[in-house]
Computed example of a mutant assay.
Amino acid sequence: MSTFPRTPRTQRGAIIGLDPLNPVASLVVFQYNPDTMTRTLTPQMAGEGGGDRTEALRLKGAPVENIRVDVEIDATDQLANGDVLASSMGIYPQLSALEMLVYPKTAQVILNTALMQVGTLEVVPPTAPLTLFIWGPKRVLPVKVSEFSITEEAYDPSLNPIRAKVALGLRVLSYNDLPLMHPGYALFLTHQVVKEAMAVVGSIAGLANAALPR
């Protein structure tokens, strides 16, 4: 038991794939928050590639941000507590919810196959759901999955996985990537506004600390 009864409850990160026709198909709240998260930002500069020198410091838009996280999923506690779902399926449902972020919907695949069979000239590829990476209230980011690796580490007698590590590579989608009326456009813009406010707070705190006597 914690010796600090007023310690706030830690929020859990999550990945959500928004599908209006099946809103809970890809909803994964992290069982354990990853200990680390790697974020790589690549600036988008207009003056790259030997262009006009007067454009050297001009920004074309938000940087390209890639995120890497390792997520652990473990059914040990649920199995010990007699959880019916964990006993019958292990963590297969949780893994499937993550995997559905990169699968087209079956109904759309069948429809496109039927359209091709009747000679439709142009069949539009299925669109992935709007995927959100949520890491606290200040970071709700539209992303697309760029890498996905699952290491299954233990199984029940029916060969359902009961412990696994999932390595995720996520590419943040900014207003450079999305049309104006797309909900992800507004989400990223809000994220940047919050980041600008945090930068002001950090700058003021840095000045205050620099002014303190050593």
Rank of each mutant, 00 (worst) to 15 (best):
P43C: 00
Q44D: 14
Q44A: 05
A46D: 02
G47A: 03
E48Y: 11
E48M: 10
E48H: 05
G49R: 10
G51T: 06
G51E: 02
D52Y: 09
T54F: 12
L57Y: 14
L57W: 13
L59G: 00
L59T: 09
K60F: 00
G61L: 10
A62D: 15
N66Q: 14
N66W: 08
R68G: 01
V69P: 01
V69K: 02
V71F: 04
A75T: 10
A75H: 09
D77Q: 06
D77R: 08
Q78I: 04
A80V: 11
G82A: 03
G82Q: 04
D83T: 13
D83Q: 11
V84I: 13
A86F: 07
A86T: 11
A86K: 07
S87C: 09
S87F: 01
S88I: 04
G90Q: 06
I91W: 01
Y92R: 07
Y92K: 07
Y92F: 02
Q94G: 02
L95P: 02
A97N: 09
A97H: 04
L98C: 10
L98G: 00
E99Y: 03
L101N: 07
L101A: 08
V102C: 08
V102M: 09
Y103Q: 14
K105C: 01
T106E: 04
A107S: 15
A107C: 04
Q108I: 10
I110F: 12
N112V: 10
N112F: 10
A114D: 15
A114M: 14
A114G: 12
L115M: 12
L115N: 12
